[in-house]
Design a protein around this nucleic acid. Sequence first.
DNA 1: GAACCGTGGAG
DNA 2: TCTCCAAGGTT
Length: 355
Amino acid sequence: MPAKEIAPKDIAPKDIAAPLLAWYDRAHRRLPWRAPPGANAADPYRVWLSEIMLQQTTVAAVIPYFEHFTSRWPTVEALAAAEDGDVLAAWAGLGYYARARNLIACARAVASEHGGRFPETEAALRGLPGVGAYTSAAIAAIAFGQRAVVVDGNVERVVARLFAVETPLPAARPQLRALADTITPGARAGDFAQAMMDLGATVCRPRSPDCLVCPLVVSCDSARRGIADALPAKTPKPPRPTRYANVYVLRDADEVMLVRRPPRGLLGGMLGLPMSEIADTPAPDNAHPGAPAAVRWTRSARPVTHVFTHFELHLAVFSGDLSGITKPSGDWRVANKSAARDLPTLFRKALDFVV
DNA sequence: GAACCGTGGAG
DNA sequence: TCTCCAAGGTT
């Protein structure tokens, strides 16, 4: 009989939480949305805002947006009172624009239905627009100190390695959540959640985990077996198809025509250049589907390529000038860098041809 | 469950 | 150049 085989089920909550929290106390990241050491509890508004921004988005990308938003709209009431277009323009470039639309809806719900204060329970938070299983648990734990099982991509990875779960994602998700539940302590709920995520981001990284400095290595089944780097397994993603569209840079003197996109779907609600429907094949040379006016269109030398999560878009960019013809209705802006800043990256790239 | 929804940085 | 993928949610 082997001498000290530690079965995964024998990992006790205190074997994880105590060393992890001790590590967190000395090694945690200093981030703008975290209360500074010794300060009072984190501001729920800032916790919520950061959690929405951090969905599928790197810390480095979020920081400047978080600073701008909290400077311009310091409270949830201020954000609730903002114009939709101003919030969407401030979000431009961060991606996943449904988050911005839900951000506005959520701020207004908190302002009008909750008296300007975020609800404090996971269940109540879960009912807010854009707040799902992860985010509701994270806010409950981080902003309100409640025990909640906070499972994001970091936690899935850390838990899969701790317990050497070899089932590939996403099928392993229920099991990983159940295992995370077993190691989640009741005390220091917010710190524990953030510690798991910091560990995942800085030590238990997706590639080349730094097991030598990991505070949990003595409990880690995959480290013991030398398979940490291979976990969690993932089912392969299907290849990304290539799709095509035309965009139109219509000029009138120093102005360029922009349009407000439909409220849902790709880049929904955002300001953009007039664009054709997205198709599986390029439009014929002399056809101009989606063109905002009947003028002479000049195709730019090179197409814009833009990669989305689920397809790669090849954009043919056409320039035209109204030269006296009546302006089509749209959002006409002076064509400069500040106008481009309000647009999703895709359109910024196309506008770079002319501004 | 699966498709849809952005972007930029790391390796 | 190319693949992976980051504090997910909605439909």
